[in-house]
Design a protein around this nucleic acid. Structure first.
Lengths: 184, 184
DNA sequence: GATTAAATTTACCGATCTGTTCACCTAAAC
DNA sequence: GTTTAGGTGAACAGATCGGTAAATTTAATC
């Protein structure tokens, strides 16, 4: 399988898992929808879990690239970028097929703390936290650790409520809190 | 089946679904672990989904009763109760077997907005919102609607991050933000 | 104690689950 | 033209899925 075909398989599998859930999406469906035979899939991924891990790696890369770039597009200052995150989230919430955070759902379906899928899901959140922390530090905030964690809380809360309520309003609510936190 | 046995079945099924997830928990396991034959279960619940709905009803009742009572125990004033919510959450996060919010996980596994399970999961969040709103109004807050939604965001964010990070710290981080919001 | 209703056991249904095997196809390399 | 590598579909494991049928046991009613 070429590198392109492999990437395409992971990309299509991502959409399936995101739309239908992990346990609810069988490998027969993955094979049918991606056009790659099950035999080939299992030649490149030893188990379904390994495919899911590859999907999560792609998602992590795509999501962080998108979010961080969008934050930079919307503002040039660290403070501005932190606040702009909620505008970016608001755009995401309005997208067709928005179904919440894939990593929250992955860690919800694979709850064992030792499970690689659970571990990798939380690793994504820590990478976000690191970025928030760097921005908070660059912004000269008094306690960048605390602010980064608080921004993560607001982000995850907004994502969950936006998904459950089918609304983008949580992004605005969270941004108001963020403005208060950042003293602006 | 007596009312007691039925309640016991739902109670045990709740633990199974909470610990293992909904799709990952089969009805054979439910029958085995509850000691109620599958035939009997299906005499009282037409489908697995109906059992899940009964489980969610129990969870909604138990959780709101516990949370609201604990908030009242910790403070006598509306403002104090709103803040005390995060102390109560912190206690919950430290409990053995804490695995996050059952309703977030239910709506993540049953994503169809028309699915009764999805609808009922969001209904739970709206009931929480109503309570926060009443407290905010009683506290004389300028914009009780906004504050209630912001408190819900903080709560859900803390729940999710506490589950993923296996830590109770998000409760303290969220409380700090809440104190700022409530102007105290 | 006989009758009746409810709950149980046990086996089963067809479908689907993850994962494998196998016979075949195709296309490039030599 | 033959080899080789990688792909395919389709059938197949063995287990489990949600859900059911029938026979049997239990328990309450008269």
């Amino acid at each position: 399988m070429s590198q392109n075909k492999r990437a395409e398989l992971i990309r299509k599998a991502l959409l399936l898992f995101y739309r239908n859930g992990f346990h609810a999406t069988g490998m027969d469906l993955v094979a049918r929808e991606t056009g790659v035979s099950k035999t080939s899939i299992y030649k490149h991924f030893r188990t379904k879990d390994e495919l899911i891990l590859a999907v999560l790696r792609l998602r992590d890369e795509n999501f962080r690239n998108w979010l961080f770039r969008r934050m930079e597009e919307l503002s040039a200052t660290p403070q501005g970028q932190l606040l702009a995150m909620f505008d970016a989230l608001g755009e995401w919430f309005l997208e067709d097929g928005y179904k919440g955070c894939m990593f929250i759902k992955a860690s919800a379906e694979f709850q064992d703390p030792d499970d690689a899928i659970n571990v990798q899901s939380y690793a994504h959140k820590r990478l976000l936290l690191d970025h928030f922390h760097a921005l908070a530090k660059a912004a000269g905030v008094a306690e960048p650790d605390v602010l980064a964690r608080q921004f993560l809380l607001l982000k995850e809360g907004a994502i969950v409520i936006a998904a459950m309520s089918h609304s983008a309003k949580p992004a605005r609510d969270a941004k108001q809190v963020a403005q208060l936190l950042i003293g602006q």
